[in-house]
Design a protein around this nucleic acid. Structure first.
Lengths: 160, 160
DNA sequence: TACATTTGTATCGCATGCGATTTAATCCTT
DNA sequence: AAGGATTAAATCGCATGCGATACAAATGTA
């Protein structure tokens, strides 16, 4: 264990580059998403619904690794935009089922252009696809470790 | 370019694992920092000051890749905790110079234990040090790319 | 069947983050 | 030296995020 002080250097921490890269990435999406009147977390919720179909609030929370106190108001805003609808489950009154509206469903066609725009904004850069895939793989490994550590009794968020 | 819809899968995006890993990492720090009555971004500001000495608001913003509207109120909270002091520069009245108080300076000794606690919380896991270093390297490359893309006229935030 | 426990959402409070804008100070150009 | 452009912080508004807690519905248990 380093005790010379360099352990406290910003460059020697993993937390900071994760934090900065995440914010910069979100910033990259922001102007593109703004054309669709969406924020980045709202876009993530739509990704989940497009990929996995209608979901409960809890399922969305598990997939995005967010808490219900974050997701609930976010879903209400998506409801105001008429992209999703919220309905109490008949089987279990505690559960709120989120479904895509017609508008939310058809919006998927337009949204396909979003990843394309992001990717093309990197076309002039020098980062390799393999390096990105490696990054992604390591990040998912880290996420699994940290998620297990913090939610030891929760089911895997990416299971189907 | 994929047009089959898998481009919109959560697992195929880089943005999501960055976002999730960043939040989970912050969550890992939260209970440890809470013992010191600090938030994670407040801790980052202290790291900058410990490493580079007294800084202007602008320098802190550049090093952490944050905007002044985020950092200003954060610094005021650190001032309330008597960890830093804020003073207008005599040379340039626009500039606010941030310096560590005696309390803020001496707190560094206690803070050295923070990275140790984080690292030890991973001691039982199966991730290799080399993989972490690789991750870090790729993240810094990504950060540089995105930072250049979004702030084309700004000086490098990590120069000394 | 009462009743404690668990579970799924939601409410509250607080601290970020950031786009847009403001304000004041400095710089630059003529 | 006057006046516009630039720059550094700060203000405002809004959307996260999350810890702590509340609340109601469902579940388990005696």
């Amino acid at each position: 264990m380093k005790t010379d002080g360099t352990a406290l250097y910003l460059e020697n921490q993993l937390c900071f580059p994760l934090y900065a890269a995440s914010r910069l990435t979100t910033k990259l999406y922001t102007p593109i998403l703004k054309e669709f009147d969406l924020t980045y977390p709202q876009y993530l919720v739509l990704l989940v619904l497009w990929q996995h179909g209608n979901q409960t609030v809890n399922e969305i929370c598990n997939r995005l690794l967010l808490e219900s106190n974050t997701v609930t108001p976010l879903l209400k805003r998506l409801e105001e935009k008429e992209l999703v609808s919220r309905k109490r489950s008949a089987k279990d009154e505690r559960v709120v089922e989120i479904s895509l509206t017609e508008k939310g469903q058809s919006f998927k066609q337009e949204a396909v252009t979003i990843p394309e725009k992001i990717i093309s904004s990197f076309s002039d850069t020098t980062i390799e696809a393999g390096e990105i895939l490696n990054l992604q793989k390591t990040l998912f490994k880290l996420i699994a470790l940290m998620n297990d550590k913090q939610l030891p009794t929760t089911t895997c968020p990416t299971e189907d």
